[in-house]
């Protein structure tokens, strides 16, 4: 039983991470019908901002050297600025294009950002250690809770609550929700399109920066493609949760995390290398049963 609880905690911890990325993707998709694959690169750049840009194998710390409140602020600010810049330069000009163009542009931005990191930091993976105090685990009733897992879950919960309050209580939050449901109608009713989309991107930047810190505390390694897998999982999370639904994205993220951990824990050894194939097979099954996603919108959806 303890083992199962342990597995469940592992699942919720990684699910929290995927939920945060899924939220970022879902938010931007909601207002712009853009699946922003560059979100993964926002995470990567946030992580790399901890070190000084150089090709050195052992990089000196940049933001990583700051006391942790300043470090968190700087990393998140970096990613927010990055998100806003990409929105302004790459995505806004294409806002009225068809969905294929938008998708291609997000790949282009992603590729560009990865090349940028390659150019500035070199191709060799690097390591950086932050949050070492969290590197130890607490044991409660035989269940092991590594500090970073606990932090991830607490941070995710906090961000979710803050985001919900923002969306429900603030004027721009309500307008953002309206824009996510029916962009054209919202504009007709005076919702400022540019501002709302910028806010969505800024939030995706805040989420991206937070995630990059959580991932680095966990893995301690910097790699150009570190944001790829979480983003792909997050994309699937939004699909099974129901595209355009924020609660769906969160639930989808937890489902992906739980599936991934359960399969790793309970598959026989020979099948475990194919764990991800298993996860995606189950995703396909879910979609066969409910193609529109779990929290699908009942209203007519402009896809």
């Amino acid at each position: 039983m303890t083992h199962f609880i342990q597995v469940l905690i592992d699942a919720v911890a990684i699910g929290s991470l995927y939920a945060l990325v899924a939220l970022a993707i879902g938010l931007v998709f909601g207002v712009m019908r853009l699946i922003n694959f560059a979100q993964g690169d926002y995470i990567t750049i946030g992580a790399y901002s901890l070190v000084v840009p150089s090709a050195a194998a052992t990089p000196a710390l940049m933001f990583g050297a700051l006391p942790w409140p300043a470090m968190i602020l700087c990393v998140i600010l970096t990613v927010v600025v990055l998100a806003l810049v990409t929105e302004r330069l790459a995505f806004r000009p294409l806002r009225n294009s068809d969905l294929t163009s938008l998708l291609i542009s997000s790949f282009a931005v992603s590729y560009f950002l990865q090349s940028l990191i390659l150019m500035v930091h070199g191709g060799r993976p690097k390591t950086v250690s932050i949050g070492d105090a969290l590197s130890r685990a607490v044991e409660i009733f035989g269940v092991r809770l590594p500090g970073v897992q606990l932090l991830t879950m607490v941070v995710a919960l906090t961000l979710l609550i803050v985001l919900v309050l923002f969306l429900k209580k603030t004027p721009i939050g309500i307008q953002l929700r309206a824009a996510a449901e029916d962009f054209q109608m919202a504009r007709l009713l005076g919702v400022p399109a540019n501002r709302v989309i910028a806010i969505a991107f800024a939030i995706s930047g805040i989420l991206g920066g937070t995630i990059s810190l959580l991932v680095i505390i966990q893995t301690g390694t910097l790699d150009i493609r570190m944001g790829l897998m979480p983003t792909i999982f997050a994309f699937f999370a939004t699909v099974i949760g129901g595209m355009g639904s924020l609660p769906g994205a969160v639930v989808g993220g937890y489902i992906m995390g739980i599936l991934s951990v359960l399969l790793q824990a309970y598959l026989p050894a020979e099948l475990r290398p194919f764990r991800d194939a298993g996860v995606f097979s189950i995703v396909i099954l879910i979609l066969l049963v409910r193609p529109q996603g779990i929290f699908a919108k009942t209203a007519k959806e402009r896809v």
């Binding site: 597995v7 592992d10 990684i14 991470l17 897992q149 991932v215 966990q218 570190m226 897998m229 475990r272």
Partner: peptide, 13 residues
């Protein structure tokens, strides 16, 4: 024995 992949963010399981 257990396995993991290059892309895995977490090997908690």
């Amino acid at each position: 024995r257990d396995s993991f992949r290059m892309e895995d963010t977490s090997i908690a399981a």
